[in-house]
Nucleic acid binder design. Structure first.
Lengths: 138, 138
DNA sequence: CAATAATTGCACTTCCGTTGCATGAAACAA
DNA sequence: TTGTTTCATGCAACGGAAGTGCAATTATTG
């Protein structure tokens, strides 16, 4: 049993061949992945399967969904031991307007915000837009 | 010539009857408005007109677009004298998971973030999700 | 092995954003 | 004023992405 299979089982997801492939794909990309990206990468697999796999992964905290302002949902693997919902694990994301890629900046946590009376914060999403290191480097 | 007409002209937008109505509608709501909301409010007007009016307003810095994570674009009037693009004018938004409304917290600016080398920030979007004052109050 | 449950694939729907083109209204020039 | 141009509006349609129902396949369990 491989590392990935163990990981999936620990999270309560049956490690099917398809899911292992999808997990590997997400692991080797360092950018957030949209459903369309997956469709292109797995032309043999059905869109629905990819869609539902991502939803399952999200539900089981294997990936987190990223909303980078493009109105296209993207996904990235959670860090080992991450609790995406906890305030201390909420990192920010960077979207490059040039190459259109979105990356997790896991080291950069979202600062705590004091809200007006009556507002109860449960989650937060911070996206910085601009030019990424690869595109600005040249 | 009314205040609204002056405002529109100052921003370089011809103050047509339709646009004045739309501006008024945005002004009297304190929440961010989606295109669908406008369709319901202006059942006589065409969707495209509302859509293009919002785009024109956005371009001329009369409204700013808000991406609250619902994958539905929303819009709200800019503060007088606001430069939506400037870092000091970037405020955060709050999305209530109960009533599904999104509001501008114009007093709460997005804190400055130090990015890794090579990353150039040009814009930022911070959305806090949770329960708003109206929904938590009771 | 049979019976059950979970996964995958196909077809289809819905919703939102967007565009092309024709019509109508307003501004402008003669 | 009339004619011309420019801009605004309305209608129709497209396209992408998210989501759902159901049948078929595969895995798990007894």
């Amino acid at each position: 049993m491989t590392e990935i299979e163990k990981t999936l089982e620990n999270k309560g997801v049956r490690p099917t061949a398809m899911r292992i492939l999808i997990y590997k794909y997400l692991a080797e990309k360092e950018v957030a992945i949209a459903l369309t990206d997956m469709e292109n990468a797995f032309s043999k697999a059905d869109r629905t399967t990819l869609y539902r796999t991502l939803k399952t992964f999200e539900e089981k905290r294997i990936v987190h969904q990223i909303d980078d302002g493009t109105n296209i949902s993207k996904y990235a693997l959670c860090e080992p031991g991450c609790n995406c919902e906890m305030e201390q694990d909420l990192h920010l994301h960077f979207h490059c307007d040039n190459c259109d890629e979105t990356v997790c900046l896991t080291e950069h946590k979202i600062p705590h915000i004091n809200l007006p009376d009556g507002y109860v914060a449960e989650n937060a999403n911070l996206v910085i837009k601009g030019i990424c290191d690869k595109c600005s480097g040249q």
